[in-house]
């Protein structure tokens, strides 16, 4: 119990530093997720519609997936140096594959007859996308976002290694000073944030697929 008390005391005593770290951690994660979504959702849709693009793009992002998060950070380091920006780039790269692949699968999974009926009734491509394709692909797409979110929140810890700040700072310091309580100051909130984003996205995903369970 002492370590928890120690962690709590630390947070109370250094509340400014703690909340700043939480803020940076969240900013990094949310930005990385948003940028990844803005890039990968359209890319996923494009892949689903233009088959010849699928091979190269999916291959590229799948190979990214194989590289462990820490390795991505280490690769970025010599290119971009230290700080917030390289950490953001690394996290964005991490967030991309699940969103891309799930968007692709979500769109490919739509029954062709539904698309045929919609365009046969006179829906233009934009309306088709907005009213039919996006809602139907949404459950899978959101599940990709969920995976990315959890991965990014957890990996944002590693940003501290390249001076990106965030809750990882406490973990590194805790490890360095053999202070388990300090380590917890970073680890517990990260775990909590990861669980919360999992629950949050799972909730949206459920709402988007409600029609499947009636």
């Amino acid at each position: 119990m002492n370590v928890f008390l120690g962690a709590y005391d630390y947070i109370v005593a250094n509340s400014d530093r703690f909340w700043e770290a939480v803020r940076v951690h969240l900013t990094l994660s949310v930005y990385a997720l948003l940028i990844a979504a803005v890039i990968c959702i359209p890319l996923g849709i494009l892949c689903a519609k233009k088959q010849w693009l699928t091979g190269p793009i999916m291959g590229l992002f799948n190979s990214l997936r194989v590289i462990p998060s820490l390795a991505v950070l280490v690769i970025i380091l010599p290119i971009m140096g230290t700080g917030f920006a390289p950490a953001l780039v690394a996290l964005t790269l991490l967030a991309c594959p699940p969103i891309l692949i799930n968007t692709y699968m979500g769109f490919r999974g739509i029954e062709p007859s539904i698309i045929e009926a919609a365009s046969g009734l006179g829906m233009g491509p934009r309306m088709l996308l907005r009213k039919i394709e996006l809602p139907l692909a949404a459950p899978l797409l959101l599940s990709g976002m969920k995976t990315s979110a959890v991965e990014v929140v957890a990996s944002a810890t590693l940003a501290a290694f390249i001076g990106g700040g965030g809750l990882g700072t406490f973990i590194i310091n805790g490890l360095g000073m053999y202070k388990f309580s300090l380590l917890l100051v970073g680890a517990l909130p990260v775990a909590l944030l990861a669980i919360l984003s999992e629950i949050g996205f799972a909730g949206i995903e459920r709402a988007a697929s409600k029609y499947q369970r009636l």
Binding site: E111, S113, I114, I115, E116, A117, A118, S119, G120, L121, G122, M123, G124, K131, I132, P135, L136, Y211, Q212
Partner: peptide, 21 residues
């Protein structure tokens, strides 16, 4: 083409109802 199709009814074997609506 969209206007043309709005003015012509179209029914297919697979029905193609929109499952989320």
């Amino acid at each position: 083409v969209t206007e043309l199709r709005q003015s012509i009814g179209y029914v297919i074997q697979q029905v193609g109802l929109f499952p989320h609506l």
